[in-house]
Amino acid sequence: MTDILIILLGTTMLYVFAVSRIEAYVKTLAFQGVLLFLLVIIDIKQIYWFNIAFLGIETLAIKAIIIPYFLLKVIRKNEIVREVEPFITQFYSLLIGVLIFIFGFIAAFWASKTNTGIKPLYFGTSLVLIIASLFLIVNRKKIITHILCYLMLENGIFLLSLSVANEMPMLVNIGVLLDFFVGVYLFAIFFNKIHEMYDGGHIDVLTELKD
């Protein structure tokens, strides 16, 4: 069951590569939140119940409901519909996405041989999520997409930290903290400010400071 969930999580990333509607990104983000919630309640057994409860509430409430709801509100208020033409076209970025998948899994299987108790599927998928989001950040132009891809990056890291959750639950909780503060508090504040000041959250307008 966990395997299916993790594979689904990986597939969402491919979906993100293919779409350009911003709302689709937000929905994917919410879906990833639900998947992570299911993973937490199914897969983690050896830690205290309140820790699991905390993680479950965090993934479901914050990752799957609050952040996506909030972002959808921002998007509708500012009438951002779709991503402008990215630097690398959709088709080629999908191709690159597939390459990232291949690389991620080769690296994970290779790493699992080093005898540190790594689960290749967990490790590979989180690696894919991290690298793919970094690629998307570089490739897309809208600031809101940057925020969304950053949140996907965090989901990848959350998945990675779940693989050590049984030994070090504290690390997972700290990852959650990061999510909450950076995702909601600062990005939301600054994003709204940039929209007010620059009229259209597009990174090409942020070129005043340079050498």
């Binding site: 970094l134 990056l153 965090e154 990675l160 693989s163 942020l206």
Partner: peptide, 23 residues
């Protein structure tokens, strides 16, 4: 504002990667 945004965004990604390192 531009400077603060670049600062927050770049440092947040950096610090996230440091978290991967800690894991």
């Amino acid at each position: 504002l531009e400077a603060a945004w670049k600062y927050v965004y770049i440092c947040s990604i950096g610090i996230t990667l440091a978290f991967v390192g800690i894991i």
